[in-house]
Write a protein that binds this DNA or RNA. Structure first.
Lengths: 174, 174
DNA sequence: TACTACGTTTAGTAATTACTAAACACACAT
DNA sequence: ATGTGTGTTTAGTAATTACTAAACGTAGTA
């Protein structure tokens, strides 16, 4: 049994849609990225409409999110009003970019609230077992987040997060 | 201005709810964990109802998910029919546990679909530029997933992922 | 100036997900 | 057996999120 390339591509993008959903992104996002990732040339908005079955509007907003994360790049050809989009082929670069994005978003705000809790505890201190317990716990969470934060910052700083570094890390974890 | 401990706890759990949502989990899940995390004694289902404002049903199902991820532990007292729940205080242990959980779920299925694409391409091979291009791209994604997979497997295997290992990793990434 | 070809925004709808309330099942005590 | 106190399941509802269709804005063209 022989499958056409379009069929194979379709299956692939469906898979990416599921992966996208799994990580908490809209499934359309995965589909859009999939289409671009398998295209050897940059695609226009209309071509993506054609390939995914989504509408211009949806693609317009989601592709902007993808661009912000550094997963796709927008370009334009001279003498052509259309924008063209292509996928970032280097996933390690993409990861760094996503982490960078996440740092200045909701997450930071939420993490800050842990810090706030800690301060509230300090400012209203009452010496008893429960306060000690709660303080200790919140402090532990704070430490954990700090470690996570240094880790992501380090990864973001890295120009060369790639297979080599990953294998280095693996050797430590051995 | 002085805040009561209950107020502080409430703010804290709200923060955790947001963090929970950010990572794609129901916000109630974060709230439940937060309440347990700040309690020095294991709590019964009804006590969690009281503290979170959710219903028994919701908590019953979500706490099962939390337990599966290793974020809370269930216990029971002799001569007491109630179950009691407490939070896992070691976040590194929790991470390992979550990763382990994720391995056997949706994600694996999705990742497998990339492998399937690769095989479909090999079985229907036509030598031309586009097939070469597509094959190369899918292969690159596969490699990336493989690296990710080894990484999580390594972390899961580790009994001692903790601050020390994390700082070791940080030193590599320097 | 008006027309055209595009991307964006908006207002509404469909689909999904989180939750509630209440029925249920089970274990234990009487 | 019957009743009582548990956690669980289920069926329905509320809230959220993803998407559509169509109006809009804008830059280039005649």
């Amino acid at each position: 049994m022989s499958q056409s390339l379009t069929k194979i591509k379709k299956d692939f993008t469906e898979g990416l849609s599921q992966i996208s959903r799994f990580w908490g992104f809209p499934k359309g996002m995965g589909a859009i990225f999939g289409v671009l990732y398998l295209s050897s040339t940059p695609l226009s908005l209309d071509e993506i409409v054609e390939a995914t079955g989504l509408t211009k509007g949806a693609i317009s907003t989601e592709i902007r999110a993808l661009a912000r994360m550094g997963l796709v790049h927008r370009s334009s050809k001279l003498g052509d009003r259309k924008d063209y989009y292509e996928a970032e082929p280097d996933f390690y670069a993409a990861i760094r970019s996503i982490l960078k994005e996440r740092q200045n978003s909701e997450f930071d705000r939420a993490v800050r609230s842990v810090k706030d809790t800690l301060e509230a505890l300090e400012n209203n201190w009452i010496e008893n077992d429960e306060w000690n317990f709660v303080y200790e716990r919140v402090q532990a969470l704070q430490d954990f987040f700090d470690a996570l934060d240094s880790l992501t910052k380090a990864v973001v700083r890295l120009e060369s997060l790639g297979v080599t570094n990953v294998t280095k890390i693996l050797s430590i974890l051995k």
